[in-house]
């Protein structure tokens, strides 16, 4: 199978890769670029562990072709905060004990970020609904919801803490 050259803008940086046209963004992120913060599980858009932001919107990287993402800004968990720093969502997840095995967390946090970007003053139901596409087998969700609501408050209090908005 012939490979095609792709130019992907990930976390503000342009990456040139050669990939077969049927390969997903998830596969290219993990295999070619070593960005393994984006997780892999169902490969059917059911569980949300592969969530990345495409032009600010949460999408499942497991059903998105890398070829479809050319020239469109992609944010993965690695680009959420500057190296060595934590985004308020990451900090809130730690503070609230919202992380157990951690496998669902990158997707969970990016889905939460997309939601908070559009809804800076969310209520609990809104957060639950926004995270419906992200499954967690450990935490029981309650602390994840609390952490997200708390991060929303932190972001409102200090919007500048919201990182380099690399890919938006």
């Amino acid at each position: 199978m012939t490979r095609i050259p792709l130019s992907l803008i990930i976390n503000g940086q342009t990456h040139e890769v050669l990939a077969e046209p049927h390969r997903t963004l998830l596969d290219v992120l993990r295999t070619d670029l070593g960005l393994i913060g984006t997780k892999e599980n169902c490969l059917e858009a059911e569980c949300g562990v592969c969530t990345v932001l495409l032009e600010g919107a949460a999408v499942n990287a497991c059903i998105l072709l890398a070829a479809q993402c050319q020239g469109r800004a992609i944010l993965t968990i690695e680009g959420l905060a500057a190296p060595g720093q934590l985004h308020p969502l990451q900090q809130a997840f730690i503070d609230h004990g919202a992380v157990q095995c951690g496998y669902c967390i990158p997707g969970m946090i990016l889905a939460a970020k997309a939601y908070l970007d559009e809804n800076p003053e969310p209520d609990e139901n809104g957060v639950r609904e926004a995270l419906a596409g992200n499954l967690c087998r450990c935490t029981g969700y309650q602390r994840i919801i609390e952490a997200t609501l708390s991060a929303a408050r932190a972001l409102r209090a200090s919007p500048s803490s919201a990182c380099r908005e690399t890919a938006r």
């Binding site: 949300g48 495409l54 919107a57 949460a58 999408v59 939601y115 926004a130 419906a132 596409g133």
Partner: peptide, 9 residues
Amino acid sequence: VGGHQVRNV
């Protein structure tokens, strides 16, 4: 229809 990730696309 699905979750946010599905409905976005």
